[in-house]
Design a protein around this nucleic acid. Sequence first.
DNA 1: CGGTGTCATGACATCGATGTCATGAACCGA
DNA 2: TCGGTTCATGACATCGATGTCATGACACCG
Lengths: 362, 362
Amino acid sequence: MSTIYDVARRAGVSPKTVSRVLNSDGPVGEKTRETVEAAMRELGYVRSNAARMMRAQKSGIIGLITGAISTKNQPSTQQGLPDLYIVQGIQRALETSGMTVMIADTAGRNDRVPHLIDTFLSHRVEGLIYVAEYHQEVNLPHLPDDTPLVLANCFDARGTPAVVPDDRRLQRDLVRRLIAAGHRRIAYLSLRPDMAAGRLRPLGYREALDEAGLSFDPALLQHVDFDQSEIGPQLLWDTIDRMLQLEQPPTVLCCGNDQMAMMVYGILRSMGRKMPDEIGVAGFDNYRAIAETLYPPLTTVDLPYNAIGARSGERLMQLISGDGRDDHSPVLVAGPVHWRGSVTELRPENVISFKTLREEKQ
Amino acid sequence: MSTIYDVARRAGVSPKTVSRVLNSDGPVGEKTRETVEAAMRELGYVRSNAARMMRAQKSGIIGLITGAISTKNQPSTQQGLPDLYIVQGIQRALETSGMTVMIADTAGRNDRVPHLIDTFLSHRVEGLIYVAEYHQEVNLPHLPDDTPLVLANCFDARGTPAVVPDDRRLQRDLVRRLIAAGHRRIAYLSLRPDMAAGRLRPLGYREALDEAGLSFDPALLQHVDFDQSEIGPQLLWDTIDRMLQLEQPPTVLCCGNDQMAMMVYGILRSMGRKMPDEIGVAGFDNYRAIAETLYPPLTTVDLPYNAIGARSGERLMQLISGDGRDDHSPVLVAGPVHWRGSVTELRPENVISFKTLREEKQ
DNA sequence: CGGTGTCATGACATCGATGTCATGAACCGA
DNA sequence: TCGGTTCATGACATCGATGTCATGACACCG
């Protein structure tokens, strides 16, 4: 591959002049510039990043550590593709910055993280983002102080800058909307409580109930470990069955995520329940491949992974430029409710007394 | 960040000796080695890739170009996450090679590909892999001859080394299996014929019918552009409705992919058809998030994107080492049929005459 | 017309790791 | 004991781009 020297020789100028043309540094004569540009074209010259970076002491590289790529063939993924969308958002946020994003994958093994960090450091990355597959607490090895780090979709105990979903608010918004549609008996099939989502979302659920003056019925809030491959569906079936046997059965089932909702569709139909007229279903995530393809399409709330990524990227650029290095409060991100065919708006006479609530929603 | 010189000074040796410790090059005295290693530890030394690569004229970097990350929020993704799994496979294949994989995303815009290639060349990648989101023909800009390129999940007219799914064989294997299970009226809801998959898979379908001596009924093979967001579901509904009205209706519906199958589940149930007893459904891709979560679980055939990635990685390493540079035949990859609850094995008395076929399947 | 500035260009050093060659010490066999 | 060998180490050049400083050619001003 040709170098700046080759170009210089061919154009009959000094390497420095070629460099000037490349970077529009100092002044270059019009004719000289053209000769040099021609030479570069003819040789198919591409500037060496290694040499450049070495001189400049800046790599222009952002390192991204994620399991997005390799963890996606678990027996059944409990969530959508959060980390993937996050990565996408990061790329979008950084593409205007001129930085090159390097992605490294953990291959599902957290013990490889230190090694990946080392590789990145050897490339002298200017910043690192660690992306978790679901909202959780993590504990990364320490980094040299001059390399900023942002945690996306996770947080740690050291107060490292983090960007996480606002689970509580999202669930609250969704339930608010269901209430505004006239629903009063709202069941919630939650994720395992050892996950951040399984802890925070029920809080939002209750918050919405409280606001509307609806009493909380413990029988309607159940944690279901639905993605255990064997007994998961059975657990889900039993839980739903029990709820439907209640004296005042729910009119909507809120699911921990869209994938659980998909499973619930099959179960309700096997039970002979008509959706959405007899019973509605709501998801969480707005995992479009599912939410829009299911029949009827799924009402759900948008966990904006893209935005989480984008905000992470922005936060990192901020840190690189030296700003907000001692701001330790996490960035919370939320998204809109998507109202689709899987939940009925109950008849107006039921809804009318909640007019105010409904307006507030907007 | 500290350099080899800092380490040398601290250890009281020359930089070259430090280099020798790092690379286990020439001989180093036991005590010297320990001193140097201690110095490195104390300084938190990490070797600079830029300098190394510059000297060595080798980057140890493989470039990956894909839309895997950004294309995943199309209104409804027509396929699973093929390119993602492919990327995963590539990583797995390359992780033992000591190469660093750099992933660049097209952000859904093919016009950015030349720019990405330039970026990679400026990093002096030792090889490139282009990953397509679905099996198709592509046309990339020319590369300098000394940088090898492999096409994954796509091919071009120039005979660039390529690794693609064996769509024809996969569909044939699936239909063979259905026939072995006793099915005779097998409908095929195919993808658009302008996609490689929409052309090749019907060939496999017919091949399996021919083998078994079953006559081909054109009424049972329909191309459905199901992922047009508005009319898609309606088209699918009408097509299925028409097929079920036939004098001899099908006993199984083969779908162009698992996502179409998911939609078909909803439609059949809305029509009041019981699955799998009245009618079976089969998919394509073994997109597990769908196939295993649907109720009942989906019978489908495994399009092994992982393997496509792995083979691509291996092929690239081969090219880099100089082997098989003039082998232009594409690598074809297939996977197994996954038999799940969405299709019934018809009663033995129906099946018995096909014993031979059934045995052959194994 | 000499001095001062601007413009266009080049010589040279530098970034960090490492290949090449040189040097000195210890060691070995004859 | 001496020439040859191996071992341990260092001096120096090199990779390609670019920052710093220098140089020569004009132009402009008083």
